[in-house]
Design a protein around this nucleic acid. Structure first.
Lengths: 205, 205
DNA sequence: CGTGATCCTGACCATTTGGTCAATAAAGGA
DNA sequence: TCCTTTATTGACCAAATGGTCAGGATCACG
């Protein structure tokens, strides 16, 4: 990666780029990359189509920018796992943080879901690189706790997959979840104690 | 639903419709509905585009046919849950069947994932109707077993969500799972014992 | 205020894509 | 074999869509 120090953004640039990314997130997360049009994004951002393309080189550019920008936020909770903390409490904190992210940022969850479903054309290097390292670190910590008898032994990577699957399911498949539960239910609220109980039983000694 | 008894299909009709649906499944499951083109489907089916449209009225028609055709297969394992069986064994059988379906039919899993992500435009009535009834039945059975003290008590619908999420994750997010695990792993094989252990701990007494 | 840089847009273009149709080819039954 | 029905396709169309561009509006700064 060459260090191509960009000139600082003007106020207008900052504002409009933000508007575009915000609008694009809404559009991409509903329709996926191919289902989204620049016109929709422009509408959502309150700008004209040529103006959108004044700030981003292409639809692809917007998408890639969104993904890489949001990836850090998305992975942050896993990085915060503290090897010196209380094992069960650390895991539960991670699970709760991940569920809270699904609740507060369902669009982001769906954006990534679309990308992975598609075969992650924009994230291949990151998947095998940065993400893998982050997961490796977490898996090592978990394994250490299990080896020390402070956590019930399970395959750490699949444990992580399970946390991803269970928490993101409530964002990605929200329509289905709501349809099955019917009105008068808050899936995210109910999921809290359910997941709490689940991971206590799996990891408790 | 009006009973519009269709004339029986000729051999050619049967064969070509199957070819188209098979090709369409491959295309839709990779690119989603909007990302797929009739040309791609025609190619995958080995037919010309007008010929594809001779057998199906529109791209939408193909998609809808696929979804409704496959939905039964997809839900079949849940229907097979036997209220007179051994509780834990019934659940484990369901989990294993669902994981096996993710392994053998990842395209179908992704097809549904795309549909739900999109807000299930073609499945809204089914989600709130047929699916909900099937889940209600299963949930009632599970609840009965829990009330009888034959299964540890958990919210039955969220238990079902968890099974869907955990098993389908290996199909829908296969790229990510493989990237994290690295080469030399078979996610589905490893998931088997992991899920076995998980549900035993959650539901065992 | 003036002027250069930045910002914005209507009009336009080329390609893609869902879908049609008239005409031809292949089945199939009497 | 002949004739009706079914199957197939090349050519075509209209709409949608990603992207361009020349020129005008606005901003920032000396």
């Amino acid at each position: 990666m060459a260090d191509q120090s960009q000139p600082p953004l003007t106020r207008i640039q900052q504002k409009n780029r933000d508007l575009i990314l915000e609008g694009a997130l809404s559009v991409f997360s509903v329709n996926g990359f191919r289902g989204a049009t620049i016109d929709q994004i422009a509408d959502a951002a309150g700008l004209s189509k040529p103006n959108v393309l004044y700030y981003f080189a292409s639809k692809d550019d917007i998408h890639k920018t969104l993904l890489t920008t949001l990836l850090d936020m998305w992975l942050a909770p896993m990085i915060r796992i503290d090897p010196d903390g209380d094992p069960l409490e650390e895991v539960m904190t991670y699970v709760r943080a991940k569920l809270e992210m699904s609740r507060r940022f369902p669009r982001e969850s769906r954006l990534f879901a679309y990308e992975i479903l598609q075969g992650a054309p924009h994230l291949t290097e990151i998947l095998g690189g940065g993400l893998r390292q982050i997961v490796d670190r977490a898996a090592t910590i978990l394994q250490g706790w299990m080896d020390d008898g402070r956590l019930a032994p399970v395959e750490p990577r699949h444990l992580i997959f399970s946390i991803w699957a269970l928490t993101q399911h409530y964002a990605d498949f929200e329509v289905q979840v709501r349809a099955v539960l019917g009105p008068g239910h808050d899936p995210f609220v109910e999921a809290g104690p359910f997941l709490d109980n689940l991971y206590r039983k799996i990891l408790g000694l």
